[in-house]
Amino acid sequence: MTTSPMLATHLADAILVLHVGVVAFVVLGALLIPIGAWRGWPWVYGFRWRLAHVLLTVFIALQAWLGALCPLTVWEQALRRHAGQVVYTESFIEHWLSRLIFFEAPWWTFVAAYTAFALLVLVEWIKVRPRRRATRA
């Protein structure tokens, strides 16, 4: 099956939206965990979402240490190339959303930032322990 350039462009935009969602999940999750623990929000103790949060954050930090690009970035760029676009050309969605999550900085800056962020999330895991739901008898 071949993908038309127009479909590839739309898929690339959809991946970019997903990528922004992943970034929001990781960043906002890390902000809301301590706030929710302080405010007594029960959902911040949910085991499944907390496990997904910590694993995703550690995965991102490991990618940085290994010098690997995010799979979503690789997939989006491949689709844009297939569509005949220069990587990160100026479509509306791409223009605004990519500016939220992509920055120009030396690689070691990202390694340090992702590592520090992963450590923060791991500390939150310890300080605000997720709870498994009690089974009903």
Rank of each mutant, 00 (worst) to 15 (best):
A37N: 10
D13G: 10
A118W: 09
L69T: 11
A116E: 03
R50D: 12
G29D: 02
L97T: 07
A61E: 02
H10F: 09
T115N: 06
L120I: 12
R133D: 03
L97E: 07
F47A: 15
R50F: 13
V111S: 03
L79A: 00
R81G: 00
V26N: 04
T57C: 10
I93K: 07
T9H: 09
H10K: 12
F102E: 05
P5W: 03
R39I: 01
E90R: 10
E104S: 11
L11G: 00
Y45L: 12
W43T: 09
V44M: 12
R48M: 13
V86H: 02
A118P: 13
A78R: 08
L62M: 14
T3M: 14
I33T: 13
L66W: 11
W41V: 05
A68I: 09
V27P: 01
H10V: 01
E104D: 13
V26C: 02
W65N: 03
A83H: 10
L79E: 07
P130L: 04
I101C: 06
L18F: 13
A14C: 14
A61D: 02
Q77M: 04
A37M: 03
G84V: 07
V23Q: 05
V27N: 04
G40R: 06
A137N: 14
R81N: 01
V23E: 04
G36N: 05
A14R: 05
Q85Y: 08
T9D: 10
P5F: 02
